[in-house]
Design a protein around this nucleic acid. Structure first.
Lengths: 407, 407
DNA sequence: TCTCTAAATTTAGTGCATAAATTTAGATGA
DNA sequence: TCATCTAAATTTATGCACTAAATTTAGAGA
């Protein structure tokens, strides 16, 4: 009589294996006893899963069992270490002006980062795939990592992406389904797609100021406003990926459109110049309003320039309305402002905290992201790692070397 | 050596048992073979779970195996039937003006419905519990069902309720945590709390026009606007239950507040009267603007009265803005207008369908609820049934009779 | 060398499932 | 009447994943 096992039974093993990997990631060297405490499983189970994870290439067992002399009595514990370099993932951010790729190891440590500006819109699918290919190849080379070691690639795009990873309403130039297929077929990589603001939310919860926060809004607030929303720790997508779209702001009093902080800083700064006011901005941009950047306006405000400060004041009012409206409907614990302007926007926080309660009965905590420009590609790394960890028994370093051996 | 089984292993049985119950609910008489097809489980498993469910009082096995002559060959199948009357649940809607209770059997069939108007606000917790008790008792008596057969009670309130079932920001008069505890202790019932609009969303997906819809917004649109949101089939709550709050509409152009359809129908109808226009409304309300109701305005519009039609036109524009804004952010497949005015609001649909695309790039389908005034208590029934089905192995008819025998 | 100890291993048993062989209840027809 | 047919139930043999308790083991120290 042959075998036959319920898929539901095998699922238990998958769940426990994922839990073990998650417990080990970032924990350094661990013993069976520690894992028992972390997972609630029995020693027999923990050890058997460890043995399997070693076989699959996820873990390495250390030879020198007695470690840094932290304990001495009894039989020495077997010591396992998560093998950070067993495989790698790639996170890619396809922004409006540039494309960024990060190669990271299994601990999520970035090994290399490559950024390349865009040349044109509306290039054919194959060329788009080529761009993605070449930047990925460059990042891999820079990281000193083989393309065969890549277990998953996550790509962030500035367009709605459905829960299933499909871009159904291809805004601007990026119609990604083809690309996904092409890249996947070329390298055998698993390619995931996700909205850029959603990835920023994952990044912020992973390494930013939203650690442990389950109800979170992250606003990408550079030139345009976009938002990624986590509810009970889950990303929201809606029917075709539009959850978090902010177009309704067009009709909100005192907001009127979805332009972001950088856009309005520049616009209002130029208005101040045009008004003929006496302001430091004139010096900063060399007298040419077209040369004025958001950065200059922030700097002027910081240095006490009245025109700059007035811009900041208007900005805080405007953003308070934006955050107030979304917080009413979504009721997050925390709203994080992210993107290229996040760092400069930190000075806006006190004023925003003051005004947001005028627009919602459930004011959230406010923060700015410290993750900088790479937040989306970092979120893509987390997204890819999540996928790999969930599928660790099917998608693993050992399966890679088998492929290599077979190919 | 004694036993010891992983909780994760037992979980498989629970999941399969729930799946079996869900497959049987509403299916009438079923055989093992049919259940194999419905659940994907093997015959041995299906039969063993059936035997267990019979033991727990969920199912009954029929004696006369050969049914209505639909087939004849082979060994007669054992035939099981879900015992609708094995236990019951109560769904309660605590509205602004009245409280409604429905007692239903395990098939979700309402056995009785009782409505009672409110007398006062701000009654002490014990009295509130007494009101709930007495209306529940009345509904049980009317249904001819014993209080001992109740497996769960779900209560809908017009206030934010967190995922854990706690009312953290007790709007108006209902601070329900006490009540939950009191009722639970008096009868040993499991008492669940949920927001009324969320329950309406469950009802609409269960028996309304949203069957099979996973991304859904249901708007309670009577005197005040409220919304319940399902994303990927899950109710959204946010940090303290505020997800779906519409207070941001205060600042949306052409909306300005959260008053509902009934409110504005009455208000605008009175404006028409005050303007001295020649309108049927004057006859309908007997010349007294204070006596004018939303219902009269709808009727006048239906009969072609110009003033009434003008109100409908304004209403469609206003609601298009409301639905457009929420649809932009939430991206539902379908928006259902529910509550007491739903039936009258059906005539608004074509105009709203025309205008909604002006306010969102992702216009949803629109519908009005046919579930009438009882939509919240019906949703509470579904909520309670969901809870019972998820916990069918722990919370079951046999455990009830055991309690009775022990007590 | 003996003892102690904490951890690993081994052994026994449970729960939940599958799959294949066998039995069974009834219908049918020689 | 009784063998035959059939679809379903049962029985039997396994597999997998886990727990729990008994036993062994690797090193430290008296």
């Amino acid at each position: 009589m042959q075998t036959g096992t319920a898929p539901s039974t095998q699922l238990v093993r998958r769940v426990n294996a994922s839990a073990m990997l998650k417990a080990m990631r970032g924990a350094g060297i661990v013993t069976g006893t520690e894992l028992m405490a972390a997972t609630g499983l029995s020693r027999a189970t923990v050890i058997s899963i460890c043995d399997e994870l070693v076989r699959l290439g996820w873990l390495q067992e250390l030879e020198n069992q007695r470690g840094a002399g932290d304990y001495v009595k009894g039989r020495p514990a077997r010591r396992f270490i998560f093998d950070d370099s067993a495989a790698s993932v790639i996170g890619i951010d396809i922004g409006a002006n540039k494309i960024t790729a990060i190669v990271a190891d299994m601990a999520g440590r970035p090994l290399s980062q490559v950024t390349r500006p865009f040349r044109a819109y509306n290039v054919p699918a194959k060329e788009r795939a080529d761009v993605l290919d070449s930047i990925a190849a460059e990042a891999l080379e820079k990281a000193g990592v083989s393309a065969d070691s890549v277990l998953a690639v996550s790509v962030g795009v500035a367009a709605p992406v459905s829960r299933g990873g499909e871009v159904l309403r291809a805004q601007e130039f990026w119609k990604s389904f083809d690309v996904r297929k092409i890249v996947s077929e070329r390298h055998g990589w698993h390619v995931l797609l996700e909205n850029d603001a959603n990835l920023a939310a994952l990044a912020e919860r992973w390494q930013g100021s939203a650690q442990g926060v389950d109800n979170l809004v992250v606003m990408l607030a550079g030139d345009r406003l976009g938002s990624g929303i986590l509810e009970s720790g889950r990303l929201l997508h809606g029917q075709v990926g539009g959850f978090g779209e902010l177009g309704y702001l067009d009709n909100v009093d005192g907001v009127g459109d979805t332009y972001g902080i950088a856009h309005y800083a520049t616009l209002w700064g130029r208005e101040a110049l045009d008004s003929g006011a006496d302001t430091k901005l004139r010096g900063l941009c060399g007298g040419d309003p077209e040369a004025l950047t958001a950065e200059m306006v922030f700097r002027a405000a910081k240095e006490g320039d009245p025109a700059g400060r007035k811009v900041m004041d208007r900005m805080a009012h405007r953003m308070a309305r934006v955050i107030g409206s979304i917080s009413t409907l979504v009721n997050p614990e925390l709203v994080v402002i992210a993107g290229a302007v996040a760092d400069s926007a930190r000075t806006l926080i006190p004023a925003m905290e003051k005004h947001v309660p005028d627009f919602t009965f459930t004011p959230p905590r406010l923060a700015t992201s410290a993750l900088g420009d790479g937040i989306v590609s970092l979120g893509a790394i987390r997204h890819a790692l999540d996928y790999v960890e969930e599928n660790a028994l099917d998608l693993n370093p050992a399966s890679l070397s088998k492929q290599i051996a077979a190919g």
